[in-house]
């Protein structure tokens, strides 16, 4: 019971924090930057920050999903990752690319291929 209560408390705070952080990124420009859209620092960050953050998220989570001990050395996640890149460069269809990496990864993990 106590654990259940704690879990519900954690979940509702978690969702509240997620809602707050996400909505903040959407409303901040309209509240604070009405007059600063042309500031060069904002333009610089707007140009490079999103791409850099996506790349770092991809790398951090790719590393965590892989088995780094011998003899696998990360191949269980690197091969599906490369498949995502190739399929996306080929067809530019987000869902197809996600499936092209996730299904092989699931197969590798479930069959213990490595």
């Amino acid at each position: 019971m106590a654990e259940n209560l704690f879990q519900n408390y954690y979940l509702s705070s978690f969702i509240a924090v997620t809602v707050l952080a996400t909505f903040a990124t959407r409303i901040i420009p309209f509240v604070f930057f009405e007059r600063h859209t042309e500031h060069p620092l904002i333009k610089h960050l707007g140009r490079y920050l999103p791409a850099a953050v996506m790349a770092l998220l991809a790398i951090v989570f790719l590393q965590r999903s892989a088995t780094w001990s011998l003899p696998v050395v990360g191949l269980d996640a690197l091969i599906p990752g490369v498949l995502v890149v190739l399929v996306h460069l080929w067809r530019s269809n987000a869902l197809l690319s996600i499936a092209a990496g996730t299904l092989p990864y699931m197969a590798i993990q479930q069959a213990g291929l490595f």
Partner: peptide
């Protein structure tokens, strides 16, 4: 169903978004 490994969808999504940004 056996969903082991389905969490790779997150990484795949980040890779896709990285390519789109590029």
């Amino acid at each position: 169903f056996n969903s082991t490994g389905i969490e790779f969808a997150l990484i795949a999504l980040f890779i896709v978004l990285t390519i789109e940004q590029y």
